[in-house]
Amino acid sequence: MTVEAVRGFLALHAPDLEVVELEASTATVEMAARGHGVTPAQIAKTLSLRVKDRTVLIVTSGDARLNNRKIKDVLGGKPRMLGADEVVALTGHPVGGVCPFGLATPLPVYCDISLRAFDEVVPAAGSTNSAVRIAPDRMATLVGAEWIDVCERPAGTPERAQP
């Protein structure tokens, strides 16, 4: 059902993109990177958070970690991860398949600048074995996301992916 919501969203807004479904689970960053033949950093993980009374999605590079101080400065409060049941109820997608496409509830979407290190990223597509290959700027445009800086990348990570 949720992969179908993503397919429906893409059919309307980006018919040239296709959902890639794998046999194996891609529910974690490491599994997704192996399955799609990319680095973990290229996996665009979508985090479901509550900041004060707002629920938001933050899409970030797979190897990035949220910085609570940055989130508080940018979004005005301390972030709290949603529970799995809340995630499904609000996004329509299971944990491990959450993406900013085809949401059950309209939610503000933010893209962390860590994604801009890559020409192509791989977000999930509504299930724990599906994904889409997409340029980060195009993804942000499709979902009306705002670019923010709320994460830390591992030491030694280049600001921009090498060609």
Rank of each mutant, 00 (worst) to 15 (best):
T2L: 04
T2Y: 05
T2H: 13
V3K: 11
E4T: 11
E4W: 02
E4N: 13
V6A: 06
L10F: 04
H13G: 00
A14R: 06
L17D: 00
V19F: 06
E21Q: 14
L22M: 11
L22G: 03
A24K: 14
A24M: 10
S25Q: 05
T28A: 09
E30K: 11
M31G: 03
A33H: 05
A41F: 03
T46A: 11
L47D: 02
L47K: 01
L49H: 03
R50Q: 15
D53P: 00
D53S: 14
T55F: 09
T60P: 02
G62D: 01
G62C: 04
A64K: 02
A64L: 10
A64D: 02
L66F: 14
R69P: 00
R69F: 06
R69E: 15
K72H: 11
D73H: 07
D73N: 13
G76E: 07
G77A: 06
M81Q: 12
L82T: 06
A84T: 12
V87C: 02
V87A: 02
L90Y: 05
H93V: 12
G97M: 10
G97R: 03
G97P: 04
C99F: 06
P100I: 06
L103C: 07
T105Y: 03
I113T: 15
S114C: 08
R116S: 02
A117P: 07
A117C: 05
V121F: 05
P123W: 04
T128D: 08
A131Y: 07
V132M: 08
A135P: 08
A135E: 14
P136R: 03
D137P: 00
R138W: 10
M139D: 01
G144A: 05
I148D: 03
V150K: 06
V150P: 07
E152K: 10
R153H: 02
P154K: 04
A161E: 13
